[in-house]
Amino acid sequence: MQIFVKGLTGKTTTLEVEPSDTIENVKAKIQDKTGLPPDQQRLIFAGKQLEDGRTLSDYNIQKESTLHIVWR
């Protein structure tokens, strides 16, 4: 499925993911596209910070959802 990651600059990155992907895995995909290391990424969805060990489905993140990224 496709999801979007929007940064503070307003730039949006598209990712191809599975609902079973962990947040850690998603951060690795973001690094592949942007070069930003996972330890500098904070992902937010529906006002919650996403924890590395959880999956996208744990947070009810579905296709075409938009996550927000904040740099540490």
Rank of each mutant, 00 (worst) to 15 (best):
N25T: 15
Q31I: 03
T22L: 11
T55E: 03
G10W: 06
V5Q: 01
D52A: 06
Q40S: 11
E24G: 10
K48S: 08
W71M: 14
D21I: 04
P37V: 08
I30A: 02
I44C: 07
L67F: 03
K11D: 14
G10Q: 07
K29Y: 07
Q41K: 06
P38F: 13
L15I: 09
F45Y: 13
A46E: 15
T13Q: 09
T9H: 15
Q31D: 03
E64P: 03
T12P: 11
A28E: 10
E64S: 09
L8V: 12
T34P: 02
E51A: 07
R42W: 11
Q62D: 09
K11T: 12
D58W: 13
N60K: 08
T34V: 09
Q62H: 07
K27A: 02
Q62I: 13
Q2N: 10
G7W: 13
G53A: 07
N25A: 12
K33E: 09
K63V: 07
Q31W: 15
D58G: 04
V70A: 10
D58F: 14
G35V: 02
K33G: 05
T22W: 04
N60I: 03
I61C: 01
I30E: 00
D39L: 08
D58N: 05
F4Y: 15
I61M: 04
K11G: 15
K29G: 03
V5L: 10
S65M: 13
A28W: 14
D39E: 14
I23V: 09
M1E: 02
T13I: 14
I30W: 05
T22K: 09
V17S: 02
D58L: 02
E24N: 09
V26L: 15
E18S: 15
K63L: 06
Q62N: 09
L67I: 15
Q49W: 13
T22I: 04
P38C: 05
F45G: 02
G53M: 08
T12S: 09
F4P: 01
P19A: 08
K11C: 07
E64M: 11
K63W: 06
N25I: 15
L67R: 00
T22P: 04
T34Q: 04
I3V: 06
D39Q: 14
P19L: 10
H68Y: 11
E24F: 11
L43H: 01
K11Q: 14
L50S: 00
L50T: 02
D39W: 11
V17W: 02
D52E: 11
V5M: 04
M1D: 02
I69N: 06
Q41P: 03
V17K: 00
K29D: 02
G47A: 04
W71H: 11
N60E: 06
R42L: 14
H68C: 07
A28F: 14
L15R: 00
S57L: 11
E16S: 15
G7K: 04
K6Y: 08
L50R: 00
Q31T: 09
T12A: 06
L50A: 01
T66A: 04
Y59V: 02
N60M: 08
V17M: 04
K29V: 04
P38A: 15
D39A: 10
L36Y: 09
G47Y: 05
I30S: 01
P37K: 11
K63G: 12
R72F: 14
N25L: 12
P19S: 06
G47E: 05
Q2K: 12
M1Y: 14
I69M: 12
V26P: 00
D52C: 04
L50C: 03
T66I: 14
S20V: 06
E64T: 06
Q31P: 02
D39P: 07
G47N: 08
Q49L: 13
T66C: 05
D32E: 14
R54K: 15
K48V: 15
Q41C: 08
E51R: 07
H68T: 14
V5C: 03
Q41G: 06
L15W: 03
E18L: 15
K63R: 11
Q49T: 13
R54M: 12
Q62V: 14
G47Q: 04
L43M: 03
D52R: 03
Q49I: 15
G7P: 07
Y59R: 00
K63N: 15
I3N: 00
F45N: 02
Q40R: 13
I23P: 02
F4D: 02
P37T: 08
Q41D: 02
G10H: 09
R42K: 10
S57D: 09
L67P: 01
S65Q: 08
R54D: 04
Y59K: 00
M1L: 06
Q40V: 08
T66R: 04
L36N: 04
I69K: 01
K48T: 14
T9M: 11
T66N: 04
Q49E: 13
T55Q: 05
Q2Y: 13
E24C: 05
L8T: 13
D58E: 09
I30M: 07
Q49V: 13
K29W: 04
T22E: 03
M1N: 02
K11R: 10
P37L: 09
W71R: 12
G47V: 02
D39K: 11
I44F: 14
R42V: 15
D32R: 14
N60V: 04
V70P: 02
I30C: 02
N25W: 09
K27W: 06
